[in-house]
Design a protein around this nucleic acid. Structure first.
Length: 461
RNA sequence: GGCUCGAUGGCAGAGUGGUUAUGCAGCGGCCUGCAAAGCCGUGUACGCCGGUUCGACUCCGGCUCGAGCCUCCA
């Protein structure tokens, strides 16, 4: 398998440090609000990667953290007059619900920052002891100048960073690039008693502490959004390397591209932030997932009404093929039937668009093949390939029924029965009238040799 | 200003130094009572200008346009 490594800027053959146990750490959310569609991309992308890794290696440990102490959380908690845990737990639950709707499997470990304050103390102390960090004015800061490798991940030199700095440099910093490991809390702010006074962790240190605690000092894969390359991952890398005596922190750095909305970056000021929970009111979670996997993970992805409609229609085609195979039994045994071209696409830096193309090739074969044994294998191949992408796992009829209630379904079935009777009597006018009635309710009929099927066709919104 | 990345047919979106991406939408045919679904067929697509080459959408240079990052935004 080849993966594009941000640090080397090349696609590299993936060689884990220990083939018996692969480790992956992905930066999770800071839980201060509901997740938007951009927040969904990393968990979906790395969900596919974790599925692929589990197929290749006997043991994979995938950790995705929850950042539950942060100034934005503090502000929300203060505004509502509640403990920060009320805020963080509320939005953690929402995050889990959103991701479940998108077919994202839970990671093996989901560490929370507030459960790792002691680990954070330890790593900060290690950095101080090794002269990579210093105390100043109640803060503990990482000294950028103490680490020659600083900037290697994001391809920036400290000088350039200084030149472009667009913030005021705090007076207690030795160097403008130095960043906070620990900062003091006022009495009304959440805080922990530390060797450096009561305070709270800085932004980057938690990932260094938690990844080491759960996965060891060197990770095989570390992922996150493109925007995290700098400063977050650059700083994490500096902290971890320096705290661990120069040991390599991450073998492969992976970063996904952004999701734009109608060609614009999502931002609160533009007012174009699309929350997953809102999208789910009108778009099936699987269609959202399809959109996210329809572009290569490193490329920017534009979200608009068209791509959603196209995703839904594309899934109609795939589920249509599977529905034709509804009565075809799966092959005996647990052999793998996934086409090699599908696997090859995913092994080439997670080329999900190419993998989807292979899935459509299977659908075409499913629609033309007549041999029962062949059909059985195609069905298994589609389901197994779909599972690697986290798609096509629901009953096809369930997909086509959309959000219809059981009452709707009973009513639709009754009308179809009436129409079948009319057709049997060659009363085409009545048959067409019933079909029109159903069409007005967005129910589209498909007459086949073995009966009439139906599906919900959502109007283009 | 610095760094990074892009520009593919109506839309989305892979890929390759010379041969069909794929899907959606459209058009024609088959099938169908008529449809729908499906199958078959169908599109002189690779931002502009140079260069390398027998040959470039694919490599190199320049240009134009666009996107992201430059201290807490996935």
């Amino acid at each position: 398998m080849k993966l594009y490594n941000t640090e080397t800027k090349t696609k590299q053959e993936f060689v884990p440090q220990n083939p018996d146990h692969v480790t992956m750490y992905v930066c999770g959310p800071t839980v201060y609000g509901y997740s938007h569609i951009g927040n969904a991309r990393p968990p979906v992308v790395f969900d596919v990667l974790s599925r692929l890794l589990r197929r290749l290696y006997p043991r994979v440990t995938y950790a995705r953290n929850i950042t539950d102490i942060d100034d934005k959380i503090n502000k929300s908690a203060a505004d509502e007059g509640v403990d920060i845990s009320v805020i963080s737990e509320r939005y953690t639950r929402a995050y889990h619900a959103d991701l479940e709707a998108l077919g994202v499997l839970p990671p093996d470990i989901e560490p929370k920052v507030t459960d790792h304050i002691n680990e954070i103390f330890q790593i900060i102390q290690q950095l101080i002891d090794a002269d990579h960090a210093y105390e100043a004015d109640g803060h503990v800061l990482f000294s950028v100048n103490s680490y020659a490798g600083y900037g290697e991940l994001s391809k920036r030199s400290p000088d350039e960073l200084l030149a472009g700095a667009r913030v005021d440099v705090a007076s207690y910093k030795r160097d403008a690039g130095d960043f906070v490991l620990w900062k003091p809390s006022t009495d009304d702010q959440p805080g922990w008693h530390s060797p450096w006074g009561r305070g709270r962790p800085g932004w980057h240190i938690e990932c260094s502490a938690m990844s080491a605690a759960h996965l060891g000092t060197t990770l095989d894969i570390h992922g996150g959004g493109h925007d995290l390359i700098f400063p977050h991952h650059e700083n994490e890398r500096a902290q971890s390397v320096c705290a661990h005596g120069g040991k390599i922190f991450v073998k492969y750095w992976l970063h996904n591209g952004f999701v734009n909305v109608d060609k614009e970056k999502m931002s609160k000021s533009v007012g174009n932030v699309l929350l997953i929970r809102d999208l789910l009111d009108s778009v099936p979670g699987e269609a959202i997932r399809y959109v996210l996997l329809g572009a290569h993970y490193r490329a920017p992805l534009d979200w608009n009404d068209d791509v959603v409609t196209q995703a839904r229609n594309s899934l109609d085609r795939l589920y249509g093929a599977l529905r034709k195979l509804a009565d075809v039994p799966l092959p005996e045994g647990d052999h793998e039937h996934v086409p090699s071209a599908f696997i090859a696409a995913l092994h080439d830096d997670l080329n999900t668009p190419q993998a989807l193309a292979e899935l459509f090739a299977l659908a075409r074969r499913a629609n033309s093949e007549t041999d029962p044994v062949g059909l059985s294998k195609i069905k298994a191949a589609m389901l197994q390939a779909g599972e690697l992408l986290g798609l096509l796992q629901q009953d096809p009829q369930h997909w086509f029924a959309g959000t219809s209630s059981t009452d709707d379904v009973a009513e639709i079935d009754a009308l179809i029965e009436q129409r079948l009777a009319a057709r049997a009597a060659q009363d085409w006018a009545l048959a067409d009238q019933i079909r029109d009635e159903l069409a007005a309710r967005h129910v589209v009929l498909e007459d086949g040799a073995d009966g009439t099927r139906w599906r919900i066709e959502k109007p283009v919104s």
